[in-house]
Write a protein that binds this DNA or RNA. Sequence first.
DNA 1: CACTAATTCCCACTTTTTCCCACATTGATA
DNA 2: TATCAATGTGGGAAAAAGTGGGAATTAGTG
Lengths: 152, 152
Amino acid sequence: MYRGTSAITLDSKNRITIPTRYREELFADCQGKMVCTLDIQHPCLLLYPLPEWEEIELKLCGLSSMNPQERLLQQVLLGNASDCEIDKSGRLLINGPLRQHTGLEKNLMLVGQLRKFEIWSESAWQTQMQQGIAKIQSGEIELTDRLLDLSL
Amino acid sequence: MYRGTSAITLDSKNRITIPTRYREELFADCQGKMVCTLDIQHPCLLLYPLPEWEEIELKLCGLSSMNPQERLLQQVLLGNASDCEIDKSGRLLINGPLRQHTGLEKNLMLVGQLRKFEIWSESAWQTQMQQGIAKIQSGEIELTDRLLDLSL
DNA sequence: CACTAATTCCCACTTTTTCCCACATTGATA
DNA sequence: TATCAATGTGGGAAAAAGTGGGAATTAGTG
């Protein structure tokens, strides 16, 4: 399970360094083979270990291409999915279309989210956190059964 | 079960010393492996022994990332969850994002809360206690069945 | 087939993190 | 009240991780 936020940089060759604390687990999960695609709700990227992604792909495969909404999801998620492999120095290449769509700058945040990561530009992530916390504290969150079950 | 409040300090390398009276129990619970994350209601941090945290993570894992509210909770809680290990001199590192979000200064309070700890800046904790006690005494507390069952 | 562009690999520098030792402070005991 | 023990605090030094860039290899193009 991946968790926590790391400040990382996009270097002049459009690579990011995966923090060492994740590498061992990543190598066990997927030998460094990962898939990066666009997020559909936020201006960020999603980074999956290959086996995780393959499960999602299977689900996407089950959607109907006759349903315009479902087809759109397929187009966005599958169309942007790009194979990335962690190189020998623990770095990973982020290709052009992905960078542009997210407006990635030099300073990024790599955010562990259980079985995947999110990649945000640092400023967007901070905004997301501030607004998100404000929203939760103001009680704008509707408490579903699943949420009530959370006792922190 | 952890209880009680200890005044502690954040040193120049952003470490806190865990009071000795907790160490033995902590070591038995998690060999010093802990997870620290943001609280969503108050400006404080939550510090869990790893096994405790993993249970919460399991619940978070069951939320749907397609539901914006549930995803927001995942982002805030998991995204800020940081692994911390108690070092050989009984100290623990609090990383940047966590410090900033909580506005931690040098003087902190470590508050035992059963299976976890809360970490407050000293001033915020005092305010919380004063206001909280005032609220309870003024009868602003709605007595639910669970509360009625408490007999002190 | 030659030339250019892009990618990958690798080395070296810089910064950060971790470990460890020593001093200060507190509290207990004689 | 002096002394000892135990805990808390600070900081130096070693190790590790992050970062940038050169050079070699591969792929793409005219």
